[in-house]
Design a protein around this nucleic acid. Structure first.
Lengths: 333, 333
DNA sequence: CGGGTTTGTGAAAACGCTTTCACCGATACT
DNA sequence: AGTATCGGTGAAAGCGTTTTCACAAACCCG
């Protein structure tokens, strides 16, 4: 144990200056004589000094920590995205000299753990994922904690959030089907209790409206994001309308299920029925056909959230952001 | 701004005792008079006091933080597991009153960012994922930082690690094929530069040896974990040995590719060729058949790593752990 | 009942940094 | 030449805890 952790005073002593000066160098204070700056940096390098975070926090009131809070009430396990998102968050924060504190918790009304750890003074800001309960965020926000939520919250006006353009993506996907010449297009919608489910359905509707097509509501079937529900929905759709020639499916997992059904029934894709999914979750070939789908930039979602929270910490009032999505055309449409 | 963050001294004053006594209550020191304890706790409750972490850290030298470090040199994006693993880590740490600090970094030899943030005094311990370079861990360990690595490191003796039983899983998967009556079994191995790749291949070999079967090395083909490589490998295998009747594939992604090939060639699964994968990555139905595969308890991996690092922090010398895997029998074998 | 132990408590010194304030010498202005 | 300005620096006071040490008061024992 070489408990001799090197401290700021050590540097000061070695350099023959006061601790104050070393501190200034550390914080890029321009008023230090260049020669000294160089000398001090040299010594810092040589001794491998790294400032003590706790002490700094205590002195400044800033922790350098941003909490990434994941609501484990919802489908944490099944969502392969959030690993990527948190990667984006972590990277962006580190670029600003901050660190990400990871909290996976059921975000119930007043979880003392969450409130305790997140109360101002413990972290500088927080990013929330997969929110299904606004209350905690609202409370923390009221306490003065800079908060950003990833994914459009139900009460979008009260929070600053970042989300992918679900509406636009659905619109462009549907338009792609129409441009292909599909005339009888249907959709398998996701859970409309989630904003992403609603917006993707709205985008579908909007595309049809723009094309002057009146939507028969029997062409809309609802799933719950799982591949099984995609199967069921596709069967339902085919039973109702054996002649559909295009379907927009609100996520890739359901699309997988739907493709399996089409395959089982011997329906040619995209010859007889064109299929577009949403998420670009399975980069490679899954099943027999490569899925045409809408891609979101998942890491950017995280990075943007991080930038926003940093802005907020610095006192700005960041405006919510919608990140563009784009169509990835492959085999199924 | 009610900047009036309530502090320990506030409590002390209000209770008419010294700060020292409040501190003792906070830390469960048994020497405080019960009546006072009650009174002080009451006031703490009433004022909503929460101790300042930074100050505590400064005084004790303990940060309450464990870093979860992910080596982004490797396939961070494609691995849906690590989100689950970090969930396990985060949960387990919070149960012990600690927090997880997330770092996603290319873990190159001496990343100053990593070394700086992880140098003793900044975190109490660290957990490493997807390691492809021992050096950083070795250095930090030498500096006295309690470290645990998830996934068997190449130099297993130097580190304490936790891993799933890759060998045992592969063995049981292969044995399952043999028990089914397969007599000409092959394997698509993963990247043998990774311990998981090696161990799964070894497990396959071991199962055959136990069954008294001599392995013809031409029944072993190597992939790189991707579905495309699975396709290629399966084609190769079928070209070499059109009569194989069982194949153990070292991960599910490659199995997906292989299944697509079998399907394209009109080979019945499991009738003509039985297939077992590894990972249980795609819980639902992917492609036409539900994959029989080996499942690892991914969240336990994270939770165990967390427990181990906590032990290490408390001074124990935890022994490395291998977590059991088990076969999930579905349609393909 | 006096000496020695306990028990419960407070004063005060850390912990390692930032930041205010005061200061001093040098430069700039009139 | 004298004063105002400014750039560069150090002393010292925090920041909110924990912890050592000393010290009363209450207890035990013979």
């Amino acid at each position: 144990m070489n408990h001799a952790r090197v401290t700021l005073s050590d540097i000061a002593q070695r350099a023959g200056v006061s601790p104050a000066t070393v501190s200034r160098v550390l914080n890029g204070d321009p008023r230090v004589a260049p020669a000294r700056v160089a000398r001090i940096n040299e010594i810092i390098e040589e001794l491998g000094y790294a400032p003590n975070r706790a002490a700094r926090t205590l002195a400044t009131g800033r922790t350098g920590l941003v909490a990434a809070v994941i609501d484990s009430n919802l489908n944490v396990f099944s969502d392969p995205f959030w690993g990527i998102i948190t990667t984006g968050v972590s990277r962006a924060l580190q670029d600003s000299g901050m660190q990400a504190l990871l909290m996976v918790r059921p975000l119930d009304d007043a979880d003392p753990q969450v409130m305790g750890t997140l109360a101002p003074g413990h972290v500088d800001g927080a990013i929330f994922f997969q929110l299904h309960n606004d209350n905690v965020v609202r409370q923390l926000q009221d306490l003065g904690l800079p908060c950003v939520v990833v994914g459009r919250p139900d009460d979008a006006a009260s929070f600053t959030y970042v989300d992918s353009d679900n509406f636009g993506g659905a619109e462009i996907a549907t338009t792609h089907l129409l441009k292909r010449g599909c005339t009888r297009v249907a959709t398998i919608a996701g859970d409309v209790r989630l904003s992403s489910g609603r917006l993707r359905l709205d985008g579908f509707r909007s595309a049809l409206a723009h094309a002057g097509i009146e939507l028969d509501e029997s062409f809309v079937v609802f799933g719950d994001w799982t591949d099984e529900s995609g199967e069921a929905a596709m069967n339902e759709l085919l039973n109702r309308h054996p002649d559909i020639d295009g379907v927009f499916i609100a996520n890739d997992a359901m699309a997988i299920g739907a493709l399996a059904v089409l395959d089982d029934r011997g329906i040619d894709v995209p010859g007889q029925v064109a299929v577009v999914g949403f998420d670009n979750m399975f980069a490679g070939r899954i099943g027999r056909k490569q899925l045409t789908t809408v891609q979101q930039d998942v890491e950017a979602l995280g990075a943007t959230a991080a930038s926003m929270v940093i802005e907020a910490i610095q006192g700005a009032v960041p405006k919510s952001v919608i990140l563009p999505t784009h169509l990835v055309v492959r085999e199924t449409a």
